[in-house]
Design a protein around this nucleic acid. Structure first.
Lengths: 233, 233
DNA sequence: GACTCTTGAATTAGTCGTACCTAATGGGTT
DNA sequence: AACCCATTAGGTACGACTAATTCAAGAGTC
């Protein structure tokens, strides 16, 4: 899924990216290209390419006579999949998961509503299949299989919305769901109510009931928020 | 706001980026680094840096013995501000505006709801100021001043939500609002109802009424959808 | 004869190192 | 305070070499 060590500059990014996104260099810190090249034992050309990528992620800014300065967190392109992965692997993972879950709570209900109008017959079938797969793996510590279908379910919803911006969040949702299962909560079987909701969403989409699909999905995301103690009083 | 021609590689991107995002090269098309370097009259080093940036945006993929292949639209990082600007400047601008407006309709209401809980006194004041500014410029063909306050208003809302993912959409919303005023609809004064809604949102946020702020903002975004003939029956 | 497997030549990106250019910066001078 | 210049670190160019992958020709097999 990721883009590991694609060439030397990729290897450099695999180390430097996480360091920066972890906040190891405070905003305004200055990195020198030559020093970095020495540190990673690569040529200046390779180092420059890596810096260009970091620059395009708004993580750093390169200025003459000054060096490569780290930009404040508020300017980072937090939607870059690579940046998201780096941050999820770092120390502010909990914070990152919260931000992404809130984003989900905003996007997924609307996406489900749109999916109810735009989904093809094939997508409806896929959705039902995913929901049934979740039911089948909802008991007896089959978390792995459950996760697989859960991820696929939300991916289809986002895809079927017909909105490209929503569709591209499939990877993000996958990361959140995967992370949640593997590291944080959910040591036991998933909440039966959540499973039921997924089945009902699939049915609502199939029936073309936009409002119902949206509302049911909102309930799902509210559950996700509650799992992280993000209240909505 | 943008990052214009920062060095030669930036100049190359200013031309090549719009071409790719405009779909001038069908998915799978191959570009050769050397040819591109010749075409733009830059060294291979510079061209390679430009390719690295395009690669980090998931617009192209570079493989040995094959060249730089253009990736399908569905894989582009459509949240990259640069990509958004390129597409907004290109031929599928209308489609892009629709996607972004739908995204707004999902995000902004939730953001407003959060803002009602998290906004600081200073942010509330700013919000009120923006709303009043909108009122002041709502009549007499003062579209420029109106737009300025409108953009600022939505920026503050997204910022005050306390969610970094929402906050980073400020630039996107700014582009949408600016684009709408400059190119498409709105040759006359803005809809008075919309202006009123903004004032009411500011008041709801100030009062900490989360549900009301969310609902009012939803009405604003519904209006934006209707302007683009995106129905919600 | 048709098919598969191996091998090697051609091609293109990847890497490196050097040399030189350019522009911000900061200190020293007037 | 205004100005000038040496310093410094990134920006650009070029050339040589490396390495991986594709493709096609040829050997071997059924």
């Amino acid at each position: 899924m990721s883009t590991p060590g694609r060439g030397l500059h990729g290897h450099v990014l695999d180390t430097l990216g996480p360091e920066i996104t972890a906040g190891e260099y405070p905003p305004g810190s200055v990195l020198r290209t030559d020093e970095l090249a020495q540190r990673f034992d690569v040529s200046r050309s390779v180092m420059r390419e890596a810096v260009r990528v970091l620059e395009s992620m708004y993580l750093v800014e390169s200025r003459r006579r000054v060096g490569v300065t780290v930009r404040p967190k508020s300017e980072w392109n937090v939607y870059d999949p690579q940046v998201i992965r780096w941050r999820l692997a770092g120390s502010d993972r909990p914070w990152q998961l919260r931000s992404l879950t809130v984003l989900r709570s905003a996007v997924e209900p609307v996406a489900a509503g749109l999916a109810a109008r735009h989904a093809t017959a094939e997508q409806c079938a896929e959705l039902t299949e995913c929901a049934l797969g979740m039911v089948a793996h909802s008991r007896g510590h089959k978390l792995e299989g459950y996760l697989l279908h859960d991820v696929a379910f939300h991916r289809v919803i986002l895809e079927a919305s017909g909105n490209e911006m929503f569709a591209r969040l499939g990877d993000v949702v996958a990361e959140v769901l995967t992370g949640r299962t593997q590291h944080d909560v959910m040591f036991e079987d998933p909440d039966p109510a959540a499973v039921t909701l997924h089945v009902q969403v699939a049915e609502a989409v199939r029936a073309g009931d936009s409002a119902r699909a949206e509302e049911l999905t909102r309930e799902i995301t509210v559950g996700a928020l509650q799992e992280l103690d993000i209240l909505a009083p």
